[in-house]
Design a protein around this nucleic acid. Structure first.
Lengths: 153, 153
DNA sequence: ATTCTTGCAAACTGTTTGCAAGCTC
DNA sequence: GAGCTTGCAAACAGTTTGCAAGAAT
């Protein structure tokens, strides 16, 4: 979790919500706060609901989905689905741009950035003759140097 | 639709199914045939069901999902979900490797291949210190000029 | 005071599963 | 003939929506 990203996005989110004439209700505020902390890389809807419940505060499933939709409409959040269809969300913030590596043995996801890859994507877009507005890359594989012995099944 | 890919994958699929001791029932055969023709680039489960119904032949929703699961287990098919969660499937076949460009205005998906991008992906994997077993790229944007034939593999 | 927000419960969609009848080997 | 396959219908999970009560401005 990057505190600078959290605060930067939080500020922008607040401004966008106010500008859109939306009120700072309890559920909406809660979802935004959870996303700022835990939504810098993909987070599942279910997880957001659980975090809010743990806090004891408000945030029903219905409200969470409603707020996520609003945030998506404001361009504050991006949605994609994990392979089995469940929704996953990620904040949209230039300073938080990254891609994903999925360890096929453990299923864990980690984020990375790679300048060479970014350049190649822009090139590919140019060759295709399109104007790019976004892109996403998922690499799958195994770590060549296992982090610990107990990760091997 | 690439006939060489269709026939090559069809042959491999047949061999794999027989090797796995599965019988060539009507529904299973139908799903495999639809995939060979229309599953070279992402196709939705719903669409497979519809094609089978159009043919008048067998292939209930239950059977389609069951067969897709089997094919996935055999490594013959890859599954990912479209942004709203619905399942999309694509045959797995070296000669059919490609990536996706989504026109954000029309929502249409087209496939492309780009050697520079492939190279950059291998480089990124090496820099990350992982062994890659697969990858996927999605570009989003708008067309700036009409599509030429060579951009559609 | 007015209008927006929230939670509940019910509706919906896409996917999975139990079971009896039919088909493949 | 034995056992896998299939279709139907019911079960299921995640997400969406209608509505009445509660909050923000």
């Amino acid at each position: 979790m990057d505190p600078a990203v959290r605060d930067g996005w939080l500020e922008r989110a607040h401004a966008s919500l106010v500008a859109a004439g939306l009120r700072l209700g309890a559920a909406r505020t809660g979802v935004v706060e959870v996303l700022a902390r835990d939504g810098q890389c993909l987070i599942e809807a279910r997880e957001i609901i659980d975090r809010l419940r743990e806090r004891g505060g408000p945030g029903s499933a219905a409200s969470v989905y409603r707020v996520l939709d609003e945030l998506r409409g404001l361009g504050l959040v991006r949605r994609d689905a994990d392979p089995d269809g469940g929704g996953r969300y990620e904040i949209v913030f230039a300073a938080a741009h990254h891609h994903h590596f999925v360890d096929v043995e453990s299923g864990s996801i980690e984020s990375f950035i790679d300048e060479g890859l970014e350049a190649a994507i822009q090139e590919a877009g140019r060759r295709l003759g399109v104007r790019l507005t976004g892109h996403s890359v998922e690499l799958r594989g195994t770590r060549t140097r296992p982090q610990s012995a107990q990760e091997r099944p």
